[in-house]
Design a protein around this nucleic acid. Structure first.
Length: 838
RNA sequence: GCCCAAGUGGUGGAAUGGUAGACACAAAGGACUUAAAAUCCUUUGUCCGCAAGGACGUACGAGUUCGAGUCUCGUCUUGGGCACCA
């Protein structure tokens, strides 16, 4: 009895692949364009914790697919690298004084070791790290292209500020009013920032989504995030002043119902509109709102606050004077930061009007009393002079032409998408290659001086006042202006976490190029990415930012495709089991005992608990470390199990028992190959048929990434083989080939044991004969009135008449048809007969 | 509140509108063994029945169809995203 020696096998083949550069890929011109594929993983941030079980899931999926494509005659680019700038290394540096580069390098080494131990077919010669000077040289270079194109601007605006990370954040990095990284409440802070004009690409980022083979949910998230809305811009004259107040509205048809206006506390006209009598009240209110965090402002959503400015505007449609209020339920960052309020038909305006006693006028025929609640559904226009009787669509159209005719408004489009706040007041990121010169203003660092490298610093601690630790490095900050050669100062902000990943897929194509970020010919050879697999957490961060950068590069003629990632697949999260008490609190796994199947109790209290699925967490003691499983059961088992758990895109719980089943499966294969009598004979007909069926199923399911069902079919074949005294060599060769993308180490070993030269990964994928997949006899199901009543074995492709004849002779069927009239006979060839009787 | 997914045995999950539960786990029984592990064999959706067999069954309620886990409408639940966006 030889135990499955996964450890020796895996070490042996990993060494072989490394020494022989088995997975090296070149831009071989003999492959036509349609025989090239670029299969990409979302590269990891090399955290100190190492790989978690989620990583091998997506990585195994792309590895199987890449190996499958290679065996089918494709030239496949399948690279790996590291997204290496990030806060954990920097925070560790603050605590210990260790340079983030040292920490990061160590973590990368660990990650690389772990990835290699899983036997992925990456071309390691193409490995990149975003924190390498060689790499960020070109990140800075692309930034300069954006700057030259006018897509980067400096502004002092109130931005999201994380007091814990002590840095500004982009809108995309704020989740439910909290910092995406650390969960701290986000504040508003007015600091000087570099901002990228992503909004200039809003329309294209929206429209091009239609051309992408991406999950609908991710497309929907991006659409919502971009948040395009069509409406009108309307100018209200301010009473007694030579000023206009511009508002944005999607319902200009309700203009007759506008009974007051509201401007955001940060609006530029606040001062001018505030009258002497209201000055004190307004100042007090503005001061209050300033001290509210974003979260507080939204938490208090129910209770509206505001103050009257003292001024009035003129409603352009009826000349009525309406008061202008200041309230923080109007956001400065959307539209014009000012609204016309139609309290009868908007919940928020209604609440505000009620609280402050403002008039409510019904302008859409309502099914409720608008004095008692707002009517927000559609309705025919009333109290609206020349709009009365019209529906929404016609009224909007008529109002738009009226506004344009009277030069007080026009059609307008608005987006929820905001420009990308691009500077971080931190150390461990790409320096922004700009110089501030008292004479020349902002000047780019010349291309031939790139990369602008990060200097050594004494302390990594951010100042917290809105400046990066780089300000203290005088020798670095003080520099010569590239233009006038006078004394100047460097920009001390760094780029955000997401920058390196905006273009890394391009660098994999040509990672060692010193002349350009990518060679245009090589870029054309590989792009676009054919399959991109990763988690859904990047739906509006990385995936939106990189599309934006790619669009810009496309406009500059630097890349050949409009979009970077043609097909996107989101792997599901690997969760874990946990146990829940009646009061919904969760009990750690090690405190629970299974008393009988499906029944669990908490050991300490004896209370019955139910098994639930929960995220892995240290406190629940249900975190799975892939290293342990690789060590104890082999990488092939880990790969196979993660693919067997369920559909790639679903989230699913890790079950160690289920893992053992997969391990047993591989062990069984090992025992067959190492102990069974292997003979060079043609397989029997039934085994041959099953083999062809298996090749068919595994081929189809691998192609469509349905790995779990492909594996179950291989199990069916192995179960049959396992019954044989002597096994045809040919069948085992086919099995080895089918297994090779899934369990490459075991497959290489089998291939060698069967007398072949390595590497199996260079062999041709097996083909199947459709004719040999068909059974001689098929089971025909007989239904009476749609209910299963009998079954018959019939020769395949029996005629309708023959089948019906057999059914009539079938005793079981006649029990159900006796004394009744058959009014319809439905025959599905080789499958089923349904008799409709009365 | 709005926008997306998803609800199938004790568990993970299979099922081009055509036999619901493939494959695997867990469990029970058996073989081998001094014993255990490993391995192999058998049973296993629920209910009634000794059995043959029958009834029920894919969150719930309707509908379309000869036939619905699958299609349509409504309801509920869970997960994810967004949220004072005018």
């Amino acid at each position: 009895m030889s135990k499955y020696p996964f450890n020796e096998i895996e070490k042996k083949w990993q060494k072989y692949w490394e020494e022989n550069k088995t997975y090296r890929v070149t831009e071989d011109p003999s492959f036509p364009k349609d025989k090239r594929r670029y299969v990409l993983d979302m590269f990891p941030y090399p955290s100190g914790a190492g790989l978690h079980v989620g990583h091998p899931e997506g990585y195994t999926a792309t590895d199987i697919y890449s190996r499958y494509l290679t065996m089918n005659g494709y030239n496949v680019l399948h690279p790996m690298g590291f997204d290496a700038f990030g806060l954990p290394a920097e925070n560790y540096a603050i605590k210990t004084g260790t340079h983030p580069y040292t920490t990061t390098k160590k973590n990368i080494e660990n990650f690389r070791r772990q990835l290699k131990s899983l036997g992925f077919s990456y071309d390691w010669d193409r490995e990149i790290s975003t924190c390498d000077e060689e790499y960020y040289h070109w990140t800075q270079w692309i930034f300069e292209k954006l700057y030259e194109k006018g897509l980067a601007y400096e502004a002092s605006t109130p931005i999201n500020w994380c007091p814990s990370c002590k840095t500004g954040l982009a809108n995309e990095e704020v989740k439910e009013g909290r910092c995406e990284r650390c969960g701290e409440k986000v504040e508003k802070k007015n600091i000087r920032q570099w901002i990228l004009k992503i909004t200039a690409y809003a329309d294209r980022l929206l429209e091009d989504l239609d051309s992408l083979d991406w999950p609908e949910s991710v497309k929907a998230m991006q659409r919502n995030w971009i948040g395009r809305s069509e409406g009108a811009s309307v100018n209200f004259k301010i009473d007694g002043m030579d000023e206009y107040l511009e508002v944005y509205t999607t319902r200009c048809d309700t203009l007759f119902g506008a009974t007051y206006m509201v401007i955001a506390p940060e609006h530029r006209l606040v001062k001018e509109l505030t009258t002497v009598e209201q000055k004190e009240a307004v100042e007090k209110y503005i001061d209050e709102t300033k001290h509210k965090s974003d979260l507080e402002r939204t938490d208090l959503a129910k209770d509206k606050t505001g103050v009257f400015s003292g001024s009035y505007a003129i409603n352009p449609v009826n000349g009525k004077k309406i008061p202008i209020w200041i309230a923080d339920y109007v956001l400065i960052s959307y539209g014009t930061g000012a609204i016309m309020a139609v309290p009868a038909h908007d919940d928020r305006d209604w609440e505000f009007a009620k609280k402050f006693g403002l008039p409510i006028i019904e302008v859409l025929k309502s099914e409720v009393d608008v004095q008692k609640q707002a009517w927000t559904e559609d309705g025919i226009h009333v109290n609206s002079e020349w709009l009365d009787g019209l529906n929404k669509k016609d009224a909007i159209e008529k109002m738009l032409s009226w506004l344009e005719e009277h030069k007080c408004g026009h059609k307008a489009i608005n987006y929820k998408l905001r420009d990308w706040v691009f500077s971080r007041q931190r150390y461990w990121g790409e320096p922004i290659p700009l110089v501030h010169c008292p004479n020349c203003g902002t000047v780019l660092v010349p291309e031939n001086e790139l990369p602008l490298t990060l200097p050594e610093v004494e302390k990594y601690e951010p100042s917290g006042t809105g400046e990066s630790p780089l300000v203290n490095v005088e020798s670095w900050v003080n520099c010569e202006c590239p233009k006038c050669h006078g004394a100047a100062k460097r920009e001390t902000n760094t780029m955000p976490q997401w920058t390196g990943s905006c273009w890394y897929y391009l660098r994999f194509i040509d990672p060692h190029n010193h002349e350009a970020f990518v060679d245009p010919e090589k870029e054309k050879y590989w792009m676009p990415v054919s399959l991109y697999v990763g988690g859904t957490e990047h739906a509006v961060l990385h995936l939106l930012y990189s599309r934006f950068w790619h669009n810009v590069l496309y406009d500059l003629g630097l890349v050949s495709t409009k979009e970077p990632f043609q097909k996107l697949v989101n792997q599901g999260m690997i969760t874990s089991f946990a146990y829940q008490k009646k009061n919904k609190s969760l009990v750690p796994v090690d405190k629970v005992k299974e008393t009988e199947p499906g029944k669990f109790i908490e050991e300490d209290t004896g209370e019955e608990v139910t098994q639930v699925i929960a995220k892995m967490s240290k406190s629940l003691k249900n975190v799975i470390n892939p290293d342990d499983f690789i060590r104890n059961y082999g990488a092939d088992s880990v790969r196979m199990y993660e693919m067997f758990m369920g559909p790639l895109t679903e989230s699913k719980p890790w079950a160690t028992n289920g893992f053992m089943g997969v391990y047993r499966f591989l062990d069984r294969i090992w025992r067959i190959i190492s102990e069974r009598n292997i003979v060079d004979i043609e397989p029997e007909k039934e085994l041959d048929r099953l083999t062809h069926k298996t090749v068919k199923k595994v081929t189809e399911d691998t192609e469509t990434l349905n790995f779990n069902t492909a594996i179950s079919q291989m199990m069916v074949l192995v179960n049959e083989i396992n019954k044989l005294e002597s096994v045809p060599k040919k069948t085992l060769e086919t099995l080895a080939l089918l297994l090779s993308p899934y369990t490459p180490h075991l497959a290489e070993e089998m291939w060698e044991m069967l007398g072949h030269k390595p590497s199996i990964s260079k062999e041709k994928w097996p083909s199947y004969d459709p004719a040999k997949c068909i059974d001689d006899e098929v089971e025909i199901v007989i239904q009476v009135n749609g209910k299963l009543r009998s079954k018959l074995m019939m020769p395949v492709n029996s005629s309708k008449e023959a089948v019906l004849d057999a059914v009539r002779k079938d005793g079981k069927t006649s029990q159900w048809t006796e004394g009744k009239t058959v009014i319809k006979e439905i025959v599905v060839p080789n499958k089923l007969v349904n008799l409709v009787v009365k």
